[in-house]
Computed example of a mutant assay.
Amino acid sequence: MSRALSARRLSSFLPHHALQAWPTPAQLAALGTVLCLYHADSSELGGWRQAVSVHACQGVDSEGVRESLCFLDGRGRCVWRLYLLPDSDFLAWDRLVASLPPGPEHDAEGSVGERLWRRLAGHLGGQRWRLCALRLHAADEGRT
Rank of each mutant, 00 (worst) to 15 (best):
V79R: 03
S62H: 04
V97F: 05
G47F: 08
G47P: 05
G64S: 01
D41E: 15
G32A: 01
A56C: 14
G64P: 07
E67S: 06
P101S: 10
T33S: 00
S99Q: 13
R66S: 15
W48H: 12
V54F: 00
G59R: 04
W93T: 00
V34K: 02
A92W: 03
H106S: 15
P86M: 00
G76P: 05
A51T: 12
E63S: 13
C36S: 14
A92D: 04
R75L: 14
E67D: 15
S68E: 11
V97L: 01
D61N: 08
G59V: 07
W80V: 06
V79L: 02
F90I: 03
V79M: 05
V52H: 00
D107E: 14
V97A: 11
C57R: 12
D87G: 04
A108S: 15
L91D: 14
G59N: 10
L100C: 06
R66W: 09
W48Y: 05
S99A: 13
V34I: 00
S62D: 11
S53C: 07
G47N: 04
V52E: 08
Y38L: 11
D73H: 02
G76L: 10
R66T: 10
G47A: 06
Q50F: 11
F71K: 07
R77N: 12
G76Y: 07
V65T: 09
L72Y: 10
F90T: 00
S43W: 08
D94L: 08
W48A: 06
F71N: 06
P86N: 01
L45P: 00
V65W: 07
L69T: 09
Y38S: 13
L85Q: 07
V34T: 11
G47S: 11
G32R: 00
V54Y: 00
S53I: 09
P104K: 02
G47I: 14
A40T: 14
L69F: 05
G46P: 06
E67P: 15
A92H: 03
D89S: 04
L69W: 09
L84P: 07
H39C: 11
H55R: 09
P104A: 12
H39W: 12
D87N: 06
L45I: 14
A108K: 03
R49C: 07
G32L: 09
E105T: 02
Q58R: 11
S42I: 01
D94W: 06
G74E: 10
Y38M: 14
F90E: 05
Y38R: 00
D61P: 01
C78M: 11
E67C: 06
V60N: 14
R95V: 14
E109N: 13
D107M: 02
R77Q: 15
C57Q: 11
E105Q: 07
P101D: 08
Y83A: 14
R66L: 12
S99Y: 15
D89P: 01
A40C: 04
S43R: 10
H55M: 09
A40W: 00
H39D: 13
E109D: 05
C36H: 03
D61G: 11
H106G: 04
S88W: 13
S43K: 02
G59E: 02
S88Q: 04
W80A: 01
E63N: 10
P104C: 00
F90S: 03
L69I: 15
P86L: 03
Q50A: 14
P86Y: 02
A40Y: 02
L45R: 13
L100G: 03
W93C: 06
G74K: 07
S62Q: 13
L96N: 11
G103P: 02
W48C: 02
V65N: 08
S99D: 12
H106I: 09
